[in-house]
């Protein structure tokens, strides 16, 4: 296993990403687990490589293994997804977690509501199959689960939110807001948490929270992905 980051590598000397991958493949790498800031980066690269390529998050686009571990966590609690209502709350625009969860949950028959302020949760998301709701109380009412997204601190400087406090006032998952959901509803967060910004500590640590189950399931989901790639690699 190699850990690789652009700093100090030939990428910082101007090598193209494809050349970097081809070099690593040449020294025997059979599986790439890639996180990259550019959306869609693997769509061009993966077809050109013999090795397995696992998307560990590309820009704002997708984070498939996070969606798998979220699904695993929900399935352990629920058994199935049909008719369930899941709210994804926060900075949807810049969230690969939100997109991967939406695509997977829709496929399994669940209903997904995206909730956040319009700059971070534009109405155009409805064209992708999500219900878009900017009123957090309305969104949470009767939900089976909420997946709270981290608010990145730089969004303030970019004008998406006026301040963290202002965002928290309007959209923080507080105990009162969490209680608008069904009594047995679950609270999720892909981490790391900004306590007191997007989620109140009482909720993050409260009885509805399955955040640490998500962390544990992350190991299992990623082991499964690697095992499937290994199997596929042997079959090919």
């Amino acid at each position: 296993m190699l850990s690789f980051s652009p700093v100090g590598s030939s990428l910082s000397k101007g090598e193209t990403l494809l050349d970097t991958f081809l070099n690593l493949q040449a020294v025997g790498v059979t599986h790439f687990v890639v996180r990259h800031e550019r959306s869609g980066v693997l769509e061009d690269l993966a077809p050109l490589l013999k090795a397995s390529v696992i998307n560990a998050g590309d820009g704002w686009h997708e984070h498939p293994t996070q969606a798998l571990l979220d699904l695993l966590t929900l399935r352990e609690r629920w058994g199935g997804f049909k008719g369930r209502k899941i709210v994804i709350l926060g900075d949807i625009r810049h969230s690969r977690v939100a997109r991967s969860n939406l695509f997977a949950l829709k496929k399994l028959g669940a209903k997904v509501t995206f909730c956040g302020p319009t700059p971070l949760c534009p109405d155009d998301f409805s064209a992708l199959g999500a219900t878009v709701e900017h009123d957090v109380e309305k969104a949470l009412k009767g939900a089976d689960a909420v997946n709270v997204l981290r608010l990145q601190l730089e969004r303030m400087d970019q004008g998406f939110v006026p301040s963290l406090a202002d965002y928290a006032l309007a959209y923080q998952l507080t105990p009162a807001r969490a209680d608008l959901m069904k009594p047995e509803a679950l609270v999720m967060h892909p981490g790391p948490i900004n306590r007191g910004v997007e989620i109140a500590s009482e909720v993050a640590d409260g009885p509805r929270s399955v955040i640490l189950e998500q962390v544990a399931n992350g190991v299992l989901a990623r082991m499964a992905v690697l095992a499937l790639c290994e199997e596929g690699g042997r079959g090919a």
Partner: peptide, 11 residues
Amino acid sequence: HEGPEALRKGL
């Protein structure tokens, strides 16, 4: 262009 397609692709 800003619209559903950009949102889907994360651009």
